[in-house]
Amino acid sequence: MTNSEDQRLQLEPNAQVQNIKVNSIKANPYQPRKTFDEARLEDLAGSIRVHGILQPIVLRKTINGYTIVVGERRFRAAQIAGLEAIPAIIKSLTDEDMMELAIIENLQREDLNAIEEAESYRKLMDDLSLTQQEVAQRLSKSRPYIANMLRLLHLPKDVADLVKAGTISGAHGRTLLTVKDTQKMRDIAKQTVKESWSVRYLEAYVNEQFGNKIKKTNSTEPKMKPKMIQQQERQLKEQYGTNISITTNNKKGQITFEFKSEAEFKRLIHQLNDKYNK
């Protein structure tokens, strides 16, 4: 739990675990997560059938029963497992507490992607009228980190979907945002996926193509190149016995052969001529 969540869920000295009927429990209406991985729920349900629920969920009492504060995934798995009642702790919380805790719990998911994380920060700001600085303080993060994540929400939907699917990373997405032409951004995103570009290579490519001032990293050139190009360089190096560099620029490319003497130059020319004349 984060510090803010832990503070709100500190249990009273006399707090007790109670067995609450599953059919009297409802989902948190402020839960930002609308879909759950069915396969993982089935796995958890199988574990619950064997071992039971090891950690009680947290509920708030309502007029018509109970509302989940923390533990909706355990609750759904318990339903699949066929449990009639589950262990729970009852807490007195405000609607604002419910909103915040639901979002914070969502942020702690293992499978959370960068877009969902950014959406959670935006929801905290919108629902609770918080500034970026206030969100940062509540979640023990820096304000620049929150601001950088929120930038991802400006990506076109099809590019954002690539981040959601894990096809490209959030860092890829932030780099693509420096391309102001939306169609060019989409084209570069597709090329990034097709050629498995690293973030470093994408930064260098965008900086070269559009003159954006992107922070450069202390990495060597081969690490910045797509895997396919690195593989071709290695094969050519083995074939010709010298360092070879392949560079691409706006759908054009260049292959550079390195030689350190006239004799080595003549050897390379001879090899290339033999290859061409075969």
Rank of each mutant, 00 (worst) to 15 (best):
M1R: 12
M1I: 11
M1G: 15
N3Y: 09
S4C: 04
S4L: 05
E5F: 01
E5C: 09
L9Q: 01
P13E: 13
Q16D: 13
V17M: 07
V17H: 10
N19W: 08
V22E: 08
K26W: 06
N28F: 05
P29Q: 12
P29F: 11
P29V: 11
P29Y: 09
K34Y: 00
T35M: 10
F36W: 11
D37V: 07
E38P: 01
A39W: 02
R40K: 14
R40I: 05
L41D: 02
S47C: 04
V50R: 10
G52H: 09
G52P: 08
L54A: 15
P56W: 01
I57H: 03
G65V: 05
G65L: 00
Y66A: 13
V69L: 05
G71A: 10
R73K: 14
R74F: 01
F75Q: 05
F75P: 03
G82N: 08
A85T: 14
I86A: 06
I86W: 08
I89D: 05
K91E: 14
K91Y: 11
L93K: 01
E96R: 14
M99R: 08
E100R: 02
I103F: 09
N106D: 15
Q108S: 14
L112C: 13
N113Q: 14
I115G: 04
I115N: 07
E117P: 06
Y121M: 06
R122F: 13
R122C: 07
D127L: 13
S129F: 03
L130F: 04
L130E: 05
Q133P: 00
E134C: 03
E134K: 13
E134V: 09
R138S: 01
L139P: 05
P144Y: 02
A147Q: 04
A147I: 01
L150F: 03
L152Q: 04
K157T: 13
K157G: 06
D158R: 11
D158Y: 00
V159K: 08
V159G: 11
V159C: 11
L162V: 10
V163W: 04
V163D: 03
V163I: 10
A165W: 01
G166T: 12
S169G: 02
S169Y: 03
T175Q: 01
L177C: 09
L177H: 10
T178V: 08
M185D: 03
A189S: 15
Q191V: 08
Q191T: 14
T192A: 15
S196D: 15
W197G: 02
S198P: 06
R200D: 15
E203G: 02
E203L: 02
A204C: 04
Y205I: 07
E208T: 10
Q209A: 05
K215G: 04
K216I: 09
S219L: 14
K223T: 10
K223Y: 12
M224N: 05
K227L: 12
I229D: 02
L236H: 07
Y240E: 02
G241N: 09
T242V: 12
N243L: 08
S245N: 14
T247S: 11
T248A: 07
N249H: 13
K252W: 07
F257L: 07
E258A: 12
E262W: 04
E262R: 06
E262Q: 15
E264M: 09
E264I: 11
K266C: 05
I269R: 10
Q271E: 14
Q271M: 13
L272I: 01
L272E: 03
D274V: 11
K275Q: 13
K275I: 01
Y276S: 08
K278F: 07
